[in-house]
């Protein structure tokens, strides 16, 4: 069944988009990530222009992460103090990211920087996560207990002042590294047009030692808040949010996210991290191929001067 998208100006198959929403929603619910880094390339692949894809995905991610966040909140598996501290850093980071975005566009090198940051970030994070996941699995296979929390292993920033007790996560750390992580997520998110959940989850686990149980729900709250404000900003400035496209994605996404969240609770943490690492790495590899392989067509055309 074909439906015409009023803002994207193309007809799409409803069931295809619905299935994409379901699949990405499942992945996002399972790992506690927004899924923007998967959905945006998929939409561009089926012919939606990149601007509309990025803007409409923010709306979809907002809905998808809200339903996920509520599911985790019911299980008391999220830390609202932690989420709000991260958000405070995130707002400042987003503002700096938007400023850099504008500057790079003036230099005509934005596309290259976006491509390179996707490759570097996704492949480095992917490799680190896969490595860690494999080591954790080997440890548990050898019968040693899984060391999720190593109380003795203090990193230098654990000595910083402004200590805050994040009760739900059972961590007592300085607010400075948490604000810094929020800043990095906001900064990177503004440049790459992603929620940053796949970065936030490993950072919280490895640096702040937040337990896997609360990290996903917390990440979902942050993703929800940033993506909701991004939707309003995109609609007000670029007029590129396609509400029909977003609604189809949303319906698929929220259903997928529910099943994903249930599946995620059943899978052991180290396997979850291994799978997410592989997924992140593969998407990074896909972007690397685009940059390194000789393109089929050296020429491309781009519409300039306003929407059609």
């Amino acid at each position: 069944m074909q439906i015409y998208l009023p803002i994207a100006d193309i007809p799409v198959n409803v069931f295809l988009v619905l299935t994409m929403g379901l699949a990405v929603g499942f992945v996002s619910g399972m790992f506690g990530i927004g899924g923007g880094f998967l959905m945006t390339p998929l939409l561009i692949f089926i012919g939606v222009q990149p601007g509309v894809a990025v803007a409409s995905v923010t709306t979809h991610v907002a809905a998808s992460s809200l339903s996920g966040a509520i599911a985790y909140w019911r299980r008391n598996a999220l830390d609202s103090t932690l989420a709000l501290t991260l958000l405070a850093g995130g707002i400042v980071g987003s503002a700096c990211g938007v400023a850099l975005f504008t500057w790079l566009r003036a230099l005509d090198q934005l596309d290259l920087v976006i491509g390179l940051s996707y490759v570097t970030l996704l492949s480095v994070v992917g490799v680190l996560m896969v490595g860690e996941g494999v080591r954790a699995i080997i440890r548990s296979r050898q019968g040693k207990p899984v060391e999720l929390r190593r109380p003795g292993s203090h990193v230098w920033f654990h000595g910083l002042p402004l200590k805050v007790r994040f009760k739900r996560s059972k961590v007592y750390v300085s607010a400075i590294p948490v604000l810094a992580i929020g800043f990095i997520i906001g900064f990177v998110g503004a440049i790459m047009g992603i929620g940053g959940g796949f970065l936030l989850v490993p950072m919280l686990i490895y640096l702040v030692r937040v337990p896997t149980a609360t990290v996903i729900g917390t990440s979902m709250v942050l993703t929800f808040l940033t993506m909701l404000s991004a939707t309003v900003l995109h609609a007000a400035t670029n007029h590129l949010v396609d509400a029909v496209l977003a609604l189809i994605l949303m319906v698929g996404g929220v259903i997928g996210a529910q099943f994903g969240a249930h599946a995620g609770q059943r899978i052991r943490g180290e396997w979850l991290r291994l799978f997410l690492g592989l997924l992140v790495f593969l998407v990074g590899l896909r972007f690397a191929f685009d940059l390194v392989l000789r393109p089929e067509d050296l020429y491309s055309i781009r519409l300039i001067g306003g929407a059609p």
């Binding site: 907002a62 809200l66 949303m250």
Partner: peptide, 14 residues
């Protein structure tokens, strides 16, 4: 309105 739609969809689903 799009944000409200996202809120509503997310809430209904949950």
């Amino acid at each position: 309105a799009a944000a409200m739609m996202a809120l509503l969809t997310g809430w209904i689903a949950s």
